[in-house]
C-alpha cells in the first residue's frame, strides 16, 4: 500500500511537469508524453501484470480528459506498449543502464504512437499527418522517459530499504 501511495504521489508530480512545465519546452510544437513514460517505467521495473492497474488509471484519465472521440484508445495502446516494454526489458535489453533502457522506450513509445495513429485513422476522419512531428514526439518522449525511469527506480529502492 505504501508503494501504491508513493507511486501515486510520484505520478502526480510527473503530471504537474507535463501540464505546467513541458508545454513551455516544446520542440516543433511537441512536448513529451510523461504519463506514458511513467506507465512504461512501471512495467519495466514492477512487471507488466503489476503495472496493469496504472495502465487502467492513467489510460482512463487520458481518455476522459482528452475528450477522445473513442473511449479506451489510450488504455489499449498503453496496454500493448507496456507489454512491449516489459517483454524487451526481460528478453532483449536486460540491463538497466541507459544504453538498454533508451531503446526499450524508443520502441515501445513508437508502438504506442503507431497504434494510436492507426486506430484514429481507421475510426475517424483523416487529418494532416506530419512525419517530422511524429518522429520528434517519439524521440523527445523517449529521452524524457529516461530520467522518469531512474526516478521511479530510486523511489522503489528507497521503499525497499
Amino acid at each position: 500500500m505504501q508503494n501504491f501511495i508513493k507511486t501515486l504521489i510520484f505520478i502526480a508530480i510527473i503530471l504537474f511537469l507535463e501540464i505546467g512545465i513541458f508545454p513551455h519546452l516544446k520542440i516543433f510544437g511537441v512536448f513529451p508524453d510523461l504519463m506514458l513514460a511513467s506507465v512504461l517505467s512501471l512495467s519495466i521495473l514492477k512487471g507488466f501484470k503489476k503495472s496493469l492497474v496504472w495502465i487502467v488509471i492513467v489510460g482512463l484519465f487520458l481518455d476522459v480528459y482528452s475528450l477522445n472521440n473513442y473511449f479506451g484508445i489510450s488504455i489499449i495502446c498503453m496496454f500493448f506498449a507496456a507489454f512491449t516494454a516489459f517483454f524487451l526489458s526481460q528478453n532483449v535489453f536486460k540491463k538497466t543502464n541507459i544504453a538498454s533502457v533508451f531503446p526499450v522506450f524508443l520502441l515501445s513509445i513508437t508502438l504506442y504512437n503507431l497504434l494510436f495513429f492507426i486506430i484514429y485513422k481507421i475510426l475517424s476522419t483523416p487529418s494532416e499527418f506530419s512525419l517530422i512531428k511524429f518522429i520528434i514526439n517519439i524521440v523527445y518522449s523517449a529521452i524524457a522517459a529516461v530520467p522518469v525511469f531512474y526516478s521511479f527506480k530510486k523511489l522503489f529502492s528507497a521503499v525497499k530499504q
Binding site: 508545454p23 508524453d33 487520458l62 480528459y65 506530419s130
Partner: peptide, 10 residues
C-alpha cells in the same frame, strides 16, 4: 483549466 496532454493536437 486544462491543456492537451497527448499527441500534437492543440
Amino acid at each position: 483549466v486544462g491543456k492537451n496532454l497527448q499527441g500534437t493536437d492543440d
